[in-house]
Simulated assay, not measured.
Amino acid sequence: MPLAPHQLGTYFALSEAVNLLQHAVEQQLRAEGDLSLIQFELLARLADAGRLSMTELADGVVYSRSGLTYQAGLLEKAGLITREPSPDDERATLVTITPDGLERVQRVLPGHVEIVSRMLFSPLTEQDTAELGDIMTRVRDHMRASPPRSSIRKRKARDSR
């Protein structure tokens, strides 16, 4: 079923807005912290949680396991995270943010907040922001209603045995 013209317009407006915001954020993160957007997202999640498994990180940032492994290797080499086997699950790897990682997040966060505030929220009223939050939460929850990508792969591998 084709999209109605207003749906297509909404999709393109959303896509362009996301791309513009991501580009500006990526430039700021590179300039102020020598981080990519995905690296910042990983560090920010770890700063909030302290320690997560690689699977939790991959599912949280919606990133492939192989891509996450590569990014985690770069962050570990830079001394921003540590990785170690889980004592509870021999298949799991736990990731912990280091003090240097926390410092890096704190260093880039003010510029990150400034860009997001200026580009995303400045043209919106408080009511617009609340409505957009409600709408995007519904859309995200709908998209996440499927099992996480990591468990889909596990189920396919298990079912093929």
Score class of each variant (00 low, 15 high):
Met1Tyr: 09
Met1Trp: 06
Pro2Val: 07
Pro2Cys: 05
Leu3Glu: 15
Ala4Lys: 13
His6Arg: 11
Gln7Ile: 08
Gly9Ile: 00
Tyr11Arg: 11
Tyr11Leu: 14
Phe12Ala: 04
Ala13Asp: 08
Leu14Pro: 00
Leu14Lys: 07
Leu20Trp: 04
His23Leu: 14
His23Lys: 13
Ala24Asn: 07
Glu26His: 03
Gln27His: 03
Gln27Ser: 04
Leu29Ile: 05
Leu29Pro: 01
Arg30Tyr: 05
Arg30Val: 06
Arg30Gly: 01
Arg30His: 12
Gly33Gln: 05
Gly33Val: 06
Asp34Pro: 00
Asp34His: 07
Ser36Tyr: 03
Phe40Ile: 00
Glu41Arg: 15
Ala44Pro: 00
Arg45Ser: 11
Leu46Glu: 08
Gly50Ser: 09
Gly50Trp: 13
Ser53Leu: 13
Met54Gly: 03
Met54Ser: 09
Thr55Trp: 07
Thr55Arg: 12
Leu57Met: 15
Leu57Gly: 02
Leu57Ser: 07
Ala58Phe: 04
Asp59Gln: 08
Gly60Met: 03
Val61Tyr: 02
Val61Phe: 01
Tyr63Gly: 00
Ser64Cys: 02
Arg65Lys: 10
Ser66Asn: 07
Gly67Asp: 09
Gly67Ala: 08
Gln71Cys: 02
Gln71Thr: 03
Gly73Val: 05
Leu74Asp: 08
Leu74Gly: 00
Leu74Lys: 15
Leu75Met: 05
Glu76Lys: 13
Gly79Cys: 10
Thr82Val: 06
Arg83Gly: 03
Glu84Arg: 11
Ser86Glu: 08
Ser86Asn: 10
Ser86Ala: 10
Pro87Trp: 04
Pro87Tyr: 02
Asp89Gln: 07
Asp89His: 10
Glu90Ala: 15
Glu90Asp: 14
Glu90Ile: 08
Ala92Pro: 00
Ala92Phe: 04
Thr96Cys: 12
Thr96Val: 10
Ile97Tyr: 10
Ile97His: 06
Pro99Tyr: 06
Asp100Phe: 02
Gly101Lys: 09
Glu103Lys: 14
Glu103Phe: 04
Glu103Thr: 09
Glu103Gly: 04
Arg104Ala: 13
Gln106Ser: 14
Gln106Glu: 15
Arg107Tyr: 09
Val108Trp: 03
Leu109Glu: 06
Pro110Ser: 10
Pro110Trp: 08
Gly111Thr: 04
His112Ala: 03
Val113Met: 13
Val113Gly: 02
Glu114Ala: 15
Ile115Ala: 02
Ile115Ser: 01
Ser117Cys: 05
Ser117Gly: 13
Ser117Ala: 14
Met119Cys: 01
Leu120Val: 11
Phe121Val: 03
Phe121Arg: 14
Phe121Gly: 07
Ser122Tyr: 11
Leu124Gly: 02
Glu126Cys: 01
Gln127Ile: 09
Gln127Gly: 05
Asp128Trp: 06
Thr129Pro: 01
Leu132His: 09
Leu132Arg: 11
Leu132Asn: 02
Leu132Thr: 04
Gly133Asp: 10
Gly133Leu: 10
Asp134Gln: 15
Ile135Glu: 13
Ile135Lys: 14
Thr137Tyr: 11
Arg140Glu: 12
Asp141His: 12
Asp141Leu: 13
Met143Val: 03
Ser146Asp: 12
Ser146Ile: 07
Ser150Ala: 12
Ser150Met: 08
Lys156Trp: 14
Arg158Leu: 14
